[in-house]
């Protein structure tokens, strides 16, 4: 990484969100650095997914905000988050079930392509070339997550593990700077988890920063460079796994104080 690129990719500044009287996020501030795998953990209902949804624009924070790549993120505009370079997966997989695996990834190319209605109607050379490039890129990504042989199957007919992979491929299709994975290992067995881990490490090696929300503490501690712990909507600690693991407050949060 060249020296003049700032190391901070995403900065959350005192992000707050409440639903009615429930304070889901209490002034959470954290910093994700370029090129790292950053873990966000916490017990059920700690506010992890809420944090995610605020960041990707699905929720509008009640306070605070995000600076991404040096520029503030616009709240309430999920499609802009993707355009800026934040891609995500969902805890309860959200694929376009009745589209093929390939088409799912092709949709993921949306923000990096241009063709509009006029191009589609005229079907001119530029449109055809772009369409071919979309298809090629999508195929490559399916290959990358190793489900290229399922390209023409409907997404909903894929196995659970393959659906997770497909969702990651779709997210990667938008060429994100930051890939956010919401509990990607949920419901996976040991072999699948190991494969997933390999995949995530590969993605990081290829230059994408990763934010990982996970329940599987072992996976997070083994995989992440730094870890943040949320409890009752507040940040408990943000540090390297070795420190976080030994922190008394974290142990209490997990064992129930």
């Amino acid at each position: 990484m060249s020296a003049n690129v700032p190391t901070t990719l995403l900065e959350a500044k005192a992000v707050a969100k409440h639903f009615g009287g429930v304070k889901a996020l209490r002034d959470v501030s954290l910093t994700i650095r370029r090129g790292e795998i950053y873990g966000l953990i916490g017990p059920n209902g700690a506010g992890k997914t809420t944090f995610f949804n605020c960041m990707t624009g699905l929720y509008v924070p009640d306070g605070g905000g995000f600076v991404f790549d040096g520029v503030p993120l616009v709240a309430d505009a999920p499609h802009q988050a993707a355009e800026r370079g934040i891609a995500r997966t969902f805890q309860n997989i959200r694929l376009f079930g009745n589209m093929t695996a390939l088409e799912n990834v092709m949709v993921g190319r949306h923000v990096r392509t241009r063709a509009g209605v006029l191009g589609a109607m005229l079907n001119n050379a530029a449109t055809r070339a772009e369409e071919a490039a979309i298809r090629q890129r999508a195929m490559d990504l399916l290959h990358y997550v190793r489900i290229e042989d399922r390209a023409d199957d409907l997404a909903k007919n894929l196995s659970y593990g393959d659906q997770r992979r497909l969702e990651i491929a779709r997210a990667l299709a938008s060429e994100p700077k930051l890939l956010c994975l919401d509990e990607p290992a949920a419901g996976m067995n040991a072999t699948e988890t190991a494969e997933l881990r390999e995949l995530i490490e590969g993605i990081r090696r290829d230059g994408t920063t990763i934010l990982l929300i996970e329940h599987d503490v072992k996976l997070v501690m083994g995989l992440c460079d730094r870890v943040a712990v949320l409890d009752y909507g507040a940040l408990v600690i943000e540090d390297v796994p070795a420190v976080v693991q030994k922190d008394q407050r974290v142990i209490e949060a997990y064992l129930g104080a």
């Binding site: 376009f96 949709v107 589609a120 979309i134």
Partner: peptide, 28 residues
């Protein structure tokens, strides 16, 4: 032509799952 275009795919994506469509950057 529309059906099998970038826009056509975006429409289908919205029909399938609007939130996911937003998340992949479609201005729904």
């Amino acid at each position: 032509r529309l059906q099998h275009s970038r826009i056509g795919r975006a429409w289908q994506a919205i029909r399938e799952d609007e939130i996911a469509a937003k998340a992949v950057g479609i201005n729904t």
